Simulated assay, not measured.
Amino acid sequence: MNGRVFGRSKTMEDFPTEDEGVFYSKAEHYWKEVPPTVDGMLGGYGSISSIDISGSKKFLQKFLGEGKGKTRPGCALDCGAGIGRITKRLLLPLFRTVDLVDVTHEFLEKARSYLGEEGKRVENYFCCGLQDFQPQPERYDIIWIQWVIGHLTDDHLVEFLRRCRGALRPEGLIVIKDNVAYEGVVPDEVDSSVCRDLQILHRLVARAGLVIVHEEQQQNFPEEIYQVHTLALR
């Protein structure tokens, strides 16, 4: 994530298909140069980690429990997991087992030590870009996707969300938490990502055959960074 919020609004059509490979390879190169620390994962904003986790926990607890419509505390998937910041502080305290997926091998290696004793409940470390990742059908109660959808083209995001839908257990939930642009699509040439506005994100979610069951804006983040929204999907 980062604090660059200004730039010409674009659509993903401005990024030709033949540039997809460059779009992904530039992102992989960028993240290989990022230190495997919480501050590195948060683009220099490591100080907001506790606020972020607290807001995510309050959001998620609305859905956990017993009974109709409630999500069971079984297995969670952390997408774009990095060194496991979200796994360590949000998912492992709430779920019995967790899987991590990230494109950067060095981050996943760091996660094995960063997660400590509780990391024994991590079942899989998948080193893979989300555009290629194939989650196991009907495995997950929660699929948590945070600060990573900007690294996927529109079509690949839709396809990934469709695969995630098939990977949910009954009453399972997909959660997207990410930066939201004020209008259009704002590209970030530094880390080779884009930031979409809410209308575009809503449209892509609908294309994937998912429904937004709850949405909130994260509060108490620094004013200079993008607004961040959390969406629960089924």
Results as ranks from 00 to 15, higher is better:
10 K>H: 11
80 G>A: 12
22 V>K: 12
231 L>W: 08
204 L>G: 09
12 M>Q: 11
33 E>L: 05
157 L>F: 14
220 N>T: 02
159 E>G: 02
86 I>V: 15
82 G>K: 07
46 G>E: 05
18 E>P: 01
115 L>C: 05
210 L>V: 00
13 E>S: 09
42 L>C: 03
214 H>I: 00
61 Q>M: 06
53 I>K: 08
162 R>A: 03
227 Q>S: 14
7 G>L: 01
216 E>A: 15
64 L>P: 07
4 R>C: 03
118 E>S: 08
109 E>G: 05
158 V>F: 03
184 G>T: 09
234 R>Y: 00
88 K>R: 15
171 E>H: 10
144 W>L: 06
224 E>F: 12
103 V>A: 15
94 L>Y: 04
113 S>R: 04
144 W>H: 03
154 D>G: 05
10 K>L: 15
198 L>W: 06
221 F>C: 01
17 T>W: 08
74 G>W: 09
175 V>A: 04
181 A>K: 09
19 D>A: 12
85 R>T: 07
161 L>C: 06
140 Y>V: 01
9 S>C: 07
92 L>P: 03
3 G>S: 15
217 Q>Y: 02
38 V>H: 03
81 A>P: 09
75 C>F: 10
42 L>R: 00
111 A>I: 00
193 S>F: 05
30 Y>C: 02
163 R>T: 06
152 L>V: 01
177 K>S: 05
229 H>F: 13
202 H>T: 02
154 D>M: 00
94 L>M: 12
204 L>Y: 08
25 S>K: 15
224 E>R: 14
170 P>T: 13
230 T>F: 03
143 I>R: 03
93 P>E: 04
127 C>R: 10
190 V>L: 14
130 L>P: 09
108 L>H: 11
137 P>F: 08
117 E>A: 14
168 L>E: 08
88 K>S: 02
112 R>C: 04
112 R>A: 13
205 V>Y: 01
13 E>G: 00
43 G>N: 12
39 D>N: 15
148 V>S: 09
148 V>L: 08
45 Y>W: 10
218 Q>S: 07
27 A>V: 03
32 K>D: 15
191 D>E: 01
128 C>I: 05
212 I>G: 02
127 C>L: 10
42 L>W: 03
209 G>H: 07
218 Q>W: 05
102 D>A: 12
43 G>F: 07
97 T>H: 12
93 P>A: 10
207 R>P: 00
18 E>C: 04
157 L>Y: 07
61 Q>Y: 06
4 R>P: 00
201 L>F: 01
158 V>G: 02
102 D>I: 10
61 Q>S: 12
185 V>G: 05
226 Y>E: 09
199 Q>A: 10
122 V>L: 01
203 R>G: 08
230 T>C: 08
165 R>N: 12
137 P>V: 11
58 K>E: 11
183 E>S: 13
154 D>C: 00
21 G>K: 15
108 L>I: 14
30 Y>W: 10
131 Q>Y: 14
185 V>F: 01
191 D>F: 05
130 L>S: 11
216 E>G: 01
76 A>E: 02
61 Q>H: 12
210 L>Y: 05
134 Q>M: 07
64 L>R: 08
197 D>E: 13
64 L>G: 11
71 T>D: 06
1 M>Q: 12
159 E>D: 14
131 Q>M: 07
122 V>N: 01
232 A>P: 01
